[in-house]
C-alpha cells in the first residue's frame, strides 16, 4: 500500500534519454561541485540528478583572478573550467557519488575532439554514471568549449566522437550565444544526441569603473542567474518545436514557478544552477513545489511538458 507521500513523489517520476529519474530536478554543472560539498547541508538523495563539474583529460588550471562579478539579478563568471582531471574524478569523487541516489551525469570538456572522446572512453569504464553531458558551450576557455558550441558542424563532430566512445546517453549542453539555437539542436540530434541541455551561460562583460578595467581577468564571462531566465525559456520553447529528443531546461531557475515555465515550454527536466549559491536547498524546494503543484492540479509531471505550446 502506498502512502500519500509516495503517491505525490510518483507524480514526478520521469525518464530522460532512457535515464530513470525519481524526479525531474537536477543541479547544474559547475554549481554543485562533485556533490559532496553540499551533502552536509541537505539531503542530496532527494535530487533527481547531479550534473557534476566539467571533467577534462588532464587537470585544467582555469583562468586568473578575478573570476566572478555580480550583475543585476545575476553574475558573470570566468572560472575557465578549473578541474583536477578525469583520473582524480574517477578515483576520488565517483566512488562517493555512485553510492548516492541521484543519477550522476558527468559534464565532459575538452580542447579538441580527441580530448572529449578520451574523457568519454575513460568514463565508459566506470559504473554508476547515468549519462554524459557534453559541454560545447563554455564561453570562458579559448579552445574547445564554445568554439564547438557555435558551429553546427563542429558541434556535430564532437557529439559523434563522444557517442562513438561511450555506451552512455550523450547530452550536449548547448550555448545560447548563437543566432539560431534550433540549428545547433538539430545538428547535435542528427549526430546522435539522446537529449539536449539548454542553456549554458550568455557571454557578457562588466567594467570596473574605479579601475577603468574589465571586472574579470578574462575580460568576458558567462552570465547566469535570474537575469537570463526569459532568454533561456524562449530557447527551450524554440528547441522543443525543432527536435524530438528530451530537453533539460536551465537558466536562472529559483523557484517552482520558474521550473514550471521551463517544463511548460518543453523541458522534460530542469536544472537549478546559480540559485544554489544563494540558497543551497533551492533544488529541493523546487522539487517539493513541483510535487505539490502536480497533486493540486491532478497531473503527472510528464503531462505538463510542453503544455504551453
Amino acid at each position: 500500500m502506498s502512502t500519500t507521500q509516495d503517491h505525490e513523489t510518483n507524480l514526478l517520476v520521469t525518464q530522460i534519454a532512457g535515464i530513470a529519474l525519481d524526479n525531474p530536478v537536477m543541479v547544474a554543472s559547475g554549481t554543485f561541485g562533485y556533490g559532496r560539498e553540499y551533502a552536509t547541508l541537505m539531503d542530496i538523495d532527494r535530487l533527481g540528478a547531479i550534473m557534476v563539474k566539467g571533467v577534462s583529460v588532464t587537470p585544467w588550471t582555469g583562468n586568473p583572478m578575478p573570476r566572478i562579478v555580480e550583475t543585476p539579478a545575476g553574475m558573470l563568471n570566468a572560472i575557465g573550467l578549473q578541474n583536477p582531471g578525469v583520473a582524480y574524478f574517477c578515483r576520488e569523487a565517483l566512488p562517493w557519488l555512485r553510492q548516492r541516489k541521484p543519477a550522476v551525469i558527468v559534464n565532459v570538456i575538452g580542447k579538441t575532439v580527441e580530448e572529449y572522446a578520451e574523457v568519454a572512453t575513460r568514463l565508459d569504464q566506470e559504473q554508476g554514471i547515468a549519462a554524459l553531458e557534453v559541454n560545447i558551450s563554455c564561453p570562458n576557455v579559448k579552445e574547445g568549449g564554445i568554439a564547438f558550441g557555435t558551429d553546427p558542424v563542429a558541434a556535430a563532430e564532437v557529439v559523434a566522437a563522444v557517442k562513438a566512445s561511450t555506451s552512455l546517453p550523450v547530452i550536449p549542453k548547448l550555448s545560447p550565444n548563437v543566432t539560431d539555437i534550433t540549428a545547433m539542436a538539430r545538428a547535435v540530434v542528427d549526430a546522435g544526441a539522446s537529449a539536449v541541455s539548454l542553456v549554458n551561460t550568455f557571454l557578457g562583460m562588466a567594467i570596473d569603473v574605479r579601475k577603468k578595467r574589465p571586472a574579470l581577468a578574462n575580460v568576458m564571462g558567462g552570465l547566469s542567474g535570474p537575469a537570463i531566465r526569459p532568454l533561456a525559456v524562449r530557447m527551450v520553447w524554440q528547441v522543443y518545436e525543432a527536435v524530438q529528443v528530451p530537453i533539460i531546461g536551465m537558466g536562472g531557475i529559483t523557484c517552482v514557478e520558474d521550473a514550471l515555465e521551463f517544463i511548460m515550454a518543453g523541458a522534460g527536466a530542469v536544472a537549478v544552477g546559480t540559485a544554489t549559491f544563494r540558497h543551497p536547498t533551492t533544488a529541493l524546494q523546487v522539487c517539493a513545489g513541483l510535487a505539490a503543484y502536480c497533486k493540486a492540479e491532478g497531473v503527472t509531471i510528464n503531462e505538463l511538458v510542453g503544455v504551453a505550446h
Partner: peptide
C-alpha cells in the same frame, strides 16, 4: 569576492606555493 562560499564555484581561489614537504591539496590544480 565569493559566490557559493562552499567550495564549489572556484570563484575565490588564491595562488599558493607548493613547497616540499607540504603535499599539494588532492583536488588542487
Amino acid at each position: 569576492h565569493m559566490a557559493c562560499g562552499m567550495g564549489v564555484c572556484l570563484g575565490c581561489v588564491c595562488k599558493t606555493k607548493v613547497t616540499a614537504p607540504a603535499a599539494p591539496q588532492p583536488n588542487a590544480v
